[in-house]
């Protein structure tokens, strides 16, 4: 299973791969991935690669990722080429119009890519007082809601409980559910 996680520096995307890794390690799986640290973390485009299984190199080859988790829709558009045919994406949407682009629609349908959209900013504004730092757990919840990644919502919750600071635990668990519900209904 190969993941690409994209977003903007400062959105907390590193925590997402940390959770995925934590779960995989418990299952005795082999893991290798790559993160971005340093300058790009200051608001630049960031990308994490994550591979579970018998791999050695940290980077995912274009056209081979099973799952794309995008904290920002623009970054999703820039990185859709990582997905394999039939791959799936969770995308945080802040401006739905761009998805109407014809070339984009053709690309996605030709490659049979399924995009699950979540209005992350709206949800966090409504339920979390606009604290957008919860995007990472929201996306993890959404991933489970969409049935992707071979992980269950319980595994994600357990991992977050073990990894996140205690004072954010309840809020984090609440947001995981918000993400889960947003996509399970859809």
């Amino acid at each position: 299973m190969q993941f690409i996680i994209v977003g903007i520096g400062g959105q907390g995307i590193l925590f997402t791969s940390k959770v995925l890794g934590h779960i995989a390690l418990k299952k005795g799986q082999k893991i290798v991935g790559s993160e971005v640290h340093g300058m790009s973390q200051r608001g630049g485009s960031v990308i994490s690669h994550y591979k579970i299984g018998d791999y050695r190199a940290p980077l995912v080859l274009k056209g081979q990722a099973d799952i794309l988790l995008a904290f920002d829709q623009m970054e999703a558009f820039r990185n859709f080429d990582f997905l394999r045919e039939g791959g799936q994406a969770i995308v945080n949407v802040h401006e739905a119009r761009s998805f109407e682009n014809d070339s984009l629609k053709t690309y996605l349908s030709e490659r049979e890519i399924i995009v699950h959209k979540i209005k992350g900013y709206d949800i966090l504004k409504k339920h979390m007082n606009g604290n957008f730092l919860f995007l990472n757990v929201l996306i993890l919840g959404a991933m489970c809601g969409a049935g992707l990644g071979n992980v269950t919502i319980d595994e994600v919750k357990e991992a977050i409980t073990e990894l996140a600071p205690a004072r954010f635990r309840d809020a984090n668990l609440k947001v995981v559910d918000l993400g889960y519900e947003a996509l399970i209904k859809a």
Binding site: I8, S40, G44, M74, E75, R78
Partner: peptide, 9 residues
């Protein structure tokens, strides 16, 4: 869509 690599700021 006018996409670009977002520079760090």
């Amino acid at each position: 869509l006018g996409l670009f690599v977002r520079p760090p700021r």
